[in-house]
Every structure is written in structure tokens, then in C-alpha cells.
């Protein structure tokens, strides 16, 4: 929480003096905050991993990969939108979606197979 406020104040200050340094402050502040969130996220992921060993482990790892990718894409998209470049943000978003879809193809195919087996 306090990191967010510190980054906010520094960004506003830098925006007044030098426009381009504000983006650096936003990038670093975001990186620090995300770094801190990842520490607690590790515990959650270990818990999910132990839980998933019993049931379908493959899908859980794909799920984790997709969450990782979406966190990073969201980080880049919000920074680009913040600096006013919404076109670049949309391109990054598109790239993230393409990667996620390409990773979830095996899951979709197994789901469809299960579905066709169920139907008469």
C-alpha cells in the first residue's frame, strides 16, 4: 500500500519536471509492488500444486501458466495505457490473448473429446 502512494507522489513530481521520467517511476513502482505480491502468491501456488497432485495435474499447470502470462500482460497494458499509448496497450493485449489461447488448445481438445464420448 505504501509503495503505491510513494510511487504516485514521485510520478506526479516527475511529471511536473520531466515528462519522460514519470514513466520510469511508474515502471519501477509497478515492478516493486508486483514483486512483493509474488512472495505471497508462491504460498498459494504451492498449496494449489499439492491439491492438484491428486486430480488432473496437467490442467492445473496450464492454468498457472495462463495466470502468470495474464499478470505480465496486464502489467504491460496498464503501464502503456497510463502513459497514454492505448494503441500499444491493445497490441500487447492481443499478443497475450493469442498466447493464452494457444496454450489452452490441448485442454479444449480433451474437453471436446470427453463431451463427444458422453453424447450418444
Amino acid at each position: 500500500m505504501e509503495f503505491g502512494f510513494i510511487t504516485l507522489i514521485i510520478t506526479i513530481l516527475l511529471k511536473e519536471y520531466r515528462k519522460d521520467y514519470a514513466i520510469f517511476a511508474v515502471l519501477t513502482g509497478g515492478a516493486i509492488i508486483l514483486y512483493l505480491c509474488l512472495d505471497t502468491l508462491m504460498g498459494i501456488i504451492d498449496f494449489i500444486k499439492t491439491l492438484s497432485n491428486s486430480s488432473g495435474g496437467a490442467f492445473i499447470s496450464i492454468l498457472l501458466k495462463i495466470t502468470g502470462i495474464s499478470i505480465l500482460t496486464e502489467y504491460a497494458v496498464s503501464v502503456c495505457k497510463d502513459s497514454g499509448e492505448s494503441s500499444i496497450a491493445n497490441k500487447i493485449d492481443l499478443g497475450g490473448k493469442v498466447i493464452v489461447i494457444s496454450m489452452s488448445i490441448p485442454a479444449i481438445s480433451t474437453a471436446l473429446e470427453a463431451l463427444t464420448r458422453l453424447l450418444p
Partner: peptide, 26 residues
């Protein structure tokens, strides 16, 4: 000044991406 700040930020971002890579085993 721009170059100095850029090196700092890039080091930070690469460290963050490495951590995310190891955490989600991407």
C-alpha cells in the same frame, strides 16, 4: 540521465520477469 535511469529500470524489470517465470514455471 536517461541512460542511467533506463539501466536501473531494465534491471528491475528483468528481475521481476525472472521471478514470475520461476514462480509460474513458464
Amino acid at each position: 540521465g536517461m541512460v542511467i535511469v533506463l539501466t536501473i529500470v531494465i534491471k528491475e524489470i528483468s528481475e521481476l520477469f525472472e521471478t514470475v517465470r520461476t514462480v509460474f514455471d513458464l
